[in-house]
Amino acid sequence: MARKTFFFGFGLAVALFAGWIVFPRVLYVQKHQPLDFLHKTHAEKSGIADCAECHTIREDGTFAGLPPMEKCAGCHSDRISDSQAEATLVDSYIKTGHETPWLVYSQQPANVWFSHAIHVKRAGLACTECHSSYGESDQVRVYQVNRISGYSRDIWGHSISRLRRAPHEGMKMSDCEDCHRRRNVEVGCLGCHE
């Protein structure tokens, strides 16, 4: 009996260790951004106070997403500091005319249509409600990509169990539904899946 308990317990312990500790490390691949963009530096030194100054919503309500190269080139057409990141930006992208291949933490699947205009302009949600205080951070997060689905870890949330998540963590459909339920806003399938 003791022998059985030992082997059963040993198997159980190995599975728990593999499932909770090894699996998340194996599942996600770590990638680095092409250069270290610091939101805090831009907010403090350049006086950019509002996210919408770079992440604009167009007149027709569509979201421009990441600012194009021209926006960066407005200040960084030439190097204005001795930062290595700026050197990469100017030499590798602005001067060559190539867009910076940013890794987007909140990139949703192609069958999802999320309207920033409705959430930000009509509902008055702050950017931090979904994107945390990343806009104030002074370091670049490592981008973790799921080997199977190909999407960022931010979609699932940092907690592999999805328990005890912070309110801004996770961008799964269930997170959208929870938020809508909390705010008593009904939306049908076609609201996001047109």
Binding site: F8, G9, G11, L12, A13, V14, A15, L16
Partner: peptide
């Protein structure tokens, strides 16, 4: 038995 424990875990 080990496999059963692993499966349960």
């Amino acid at each position: 038995v080990w496999s059963a424990g692993a499966a349960a875990g």
